[in-house]
Design a binder for these strands. Structure first.
Lengths: 233, 233
DNA sequence: TTGCAGAAACCGACCGACCGGTTAGTCTGT
DNA sequence: ACAGACTAACCGGTCGGTCGGTTTCTGCAA
């Protein structure tokens, strides 16, 4: 029952969803994790059967069990890998940035880029499904929840630092703001289509503008003082 | 195969999840829809069995099928009812408001209040699960999607009107903004606990402030001109 | 007030399909 | 020879749903 190691920087980690193993992870295994992740995201964990996954990689269910211990293990590995990516791409880089405004920009940009990234032939890694971990039993669920909490705290503390130095209106509840911000980011996974009009970069910049200035803020300090009248109809 | 009617104003609609029936809908039926909704939200549609639902209302599965035609019917009725509420509480009132800024406020407030409302002994009505309608076949899924689209268009058009009159920065993509806004609202269903610190009203006002002014907008037009320096530190 | 028919409410037993997972054994490359 | 990759057949169990029957409620004629 050792806690599953996650790849350290310099680990030569292979692109899509590698299990914690030594180097030449078999192509099959990669394929299995990639297809399983795609199906879990597409149809949901409960609605995806092991036969579905087996069929997607062109082996029988028994063949699939040659590589994988259980369905729950499969989910745990996938979600853990998604979390690893989140920490490698977002959390650790963010912690290296001292200025909270810059840190916030980095978090938004990197997280949005992380979501919807297409790796190999797999669909987008999850983070979304990380919310759908009800299929995980006791200790493993707690492990994922702890890392989600860690990420949330990073965001909230960053907003807290901004509020402390006066960059955020004191009337705003930074805990609620942190939820809102994360909600906006994660929501992109549900509406953005890779083939759509908006690229990942576009969306990242749009979201940054959205959360920074808000939707109703007029562009520069408006030159005409008329703008401040109470509800002009 | 007539399209299921939804209650018109003045219909004397009974509180939690009534099927389309004449007045004295049986208590059992109300209980069934309420418990089913609670379980679907709690564990997900696929992970909830008909036996679970039957047990929750203290009858056998066969007894349950006396009231309900199929599991999919149950889901469809619940989701349709959730949509009805969204339209009654948010869309139709919003359409009666001419000013787009006021309309936006109404949408945010009423939608946040609608989510997490507790009716009778049922949990919060869904709108969340309206995203989880993969269990619905062809035509019925399309029917729900059409109404989701209608709501989305209302939000986007409202933002469009605000942008047209200069209240929203021209650089912002209002389609992305609409997604962001809806994401923030729906996300509340995933993190807000009724017993928690923040009331529904609190959250509604916080979100309104969040999307209006953004997080990084300093309070009033800062009196010291020093504030406009490029990235201090 | 009673008797009773019919409808609504409900149950125990059961169905075929499919679930996650296992077994025993067969290929194939080294 | 042997190990990894893989399969056909199968396991106990649960799924959504059905069946035939019994109880309980309700309206109404005598």
């Amino acid at each position: 029952m050792t806690t599953p190691r996650r790849p350290k920087p310099g680990d030569l980690v292979i692109d899509p969803l590698p299990p914690a193993r030594t180097h030449p992870v078999s192509e099959r295994l990669r394929q299995i994790y990639a297809e399983a992740a795609r199906l879990f995201v597409e149809k949901g964990y409960d609605a995806t059967s092991m036969s579905d996954i087996a069929q997607a990689v062109n082996i029988t269910k028994a063949g699939l069990y040659h590589f994988v211990k259980s369905k729950e293990d499969l989910l745990m590995t996938i979600v853990t890998h998604g979390m690893d990516q989140l920490f490698d791409d977002v959390v650790e880089p963010a912690r290296a940035v001292a200025d909270p405004a810059e840190r916030l920009s980095l978090i938004v940009r990197n997280h949005v880029m992380n979501i919807g990234r297409v790796r190999g032939r797999s669909g987008n890694p999850l983070t979304i499904i990380a919310d759908d971990v009800s299929g995980l039993g006791g200790e493993r669920k707690r492990q994922i929840d702890r890392r989600k909490r860690e990420y949330f705290d990073l965001v909230r503390d960053t907003l807290g630092a901004l509020q402390a130095r006066g960059d955020i209106d004191g009337a705003l509840d930074i805990t609620v703001c942190a939820h809102n911000l994360i909600g906006v980011i994660l929501w992109t996974a549900r509406w953005r289509r890779p083939e759509g009009r908006a690229s990942r970069d576009d969306v990242a910049e749009q979201i940054l503008a959205f959360v920074s200035r808000g939707v109703l803020a007029r562009r520069p300090p408006d030159t005409s003082t008329l703008a401040n009248l109470p509800t002009d109809r």
